[in-house]
């Protein structure tokens, strides 16, 4: 097995040029020489409106991969009540926008997560929860868990901690909403454009690859 990983630009560090649907908006302040503040174009305004609706109605796929899923229960119930932010749980990937990868991800679950993620309609986002998704966390030397999620799926927001408290999750969701409103959360676009690279990495870790090339 080849251990050399071609390193692309990760989605968090800034996607490749030309991949964004429109220029980042929201600051209203341009520092360029000949740039003047001007009214957004029709397409940009429509994109802003769409993003506002998307950000305020996040439907989360109810699928817990690891121990972090236990933090979603207090988030949904009376204490932290995520429904007040418009976040609801949907039990089917066809109707969800957000996939929370909660904690460690076994290779077996990674296959199911890829399948669910590709079945979700675009635009879609991934919230990676816990340090296991970032660098392996306390399971970094486990024989069956992956160490870096962003090699296999595009991550829009990381929430670190082991475990992050529900407050951290709320903060992460607010960050996700802010990024969606600004048009920065386009990991799904990154995934579509660099599909070959993602598929190559996925096939390296999933030794018995029996998925179709893309799960519609």
């Amino acid at each position: 097995m080849d251990d050399k990983i071609v390193k692309p630009e990760p989605p968090l560090g800034g996607p490749p040029q030309g991949s964004r649907p429109h220029a980042p908006v929201g600051d209203g302040c341009f520092l360029g020489e000949e740039m003047k503040p001007q009214a957004p174009s029709y397409k940009e305004a429509l994109a802003r409106i769409k993003n506002w609706f998307r950000a305020n109605s996040l439907w989360v796929m109810a699928y817990g991969t690891g121990c972090g899923a236990i933090e979603l229960r207090p988030l949904a119930t009376a204490r932290f009540d995520m429904e007040r932010l418009g976040i609801a749980m949907r039990p089917t990937p066809r109707q969800s926008n957000v996939l929370i990868v909660s904690g460690y991800l076994a290779v077996k679950s990674l296959k199911r997560v890829i399948r669910s993620y590709e079945q979700m309609p675009s635009p879609k986002w991934i919230v990676a929860l816990g340090s296991c998704t970032i660098n392996g966390g306390m399971y970094w030397d486990s024989y069956n868990t992956i160490n870096r999620l962003d090699l296999y799926l595009p991550v829009d927001v990381y929430i670190n901690g082991c475990m992050p408290r529900p407050e951290a999750l709320v903060a992460g969701f607010q960050e996700l909403m802010r990024r969606i409103k600004k048009g920065e959360a386009d990991g799904w676009r990154h995934y579509m454009e660099n599909l070959d690279w993602y598929k190559e990495n996925q096939k390296k870790i999933i030794t018995d690859w029996d998925l179709p090339e893309y799960n519609w």
Partner: peptide, 18 residues
């Protein structure tokens, strides 16, 4: 006799700088 760390270093890519 299964060496987990060696297996992980060989097969599971991690994040640099850890």
């Amino acid at each position: 006799d299964f060496d987990t760390v060696a297996f992980v270093e060989k097969h599971i890519p991690g994040r640099e700088g850890r």
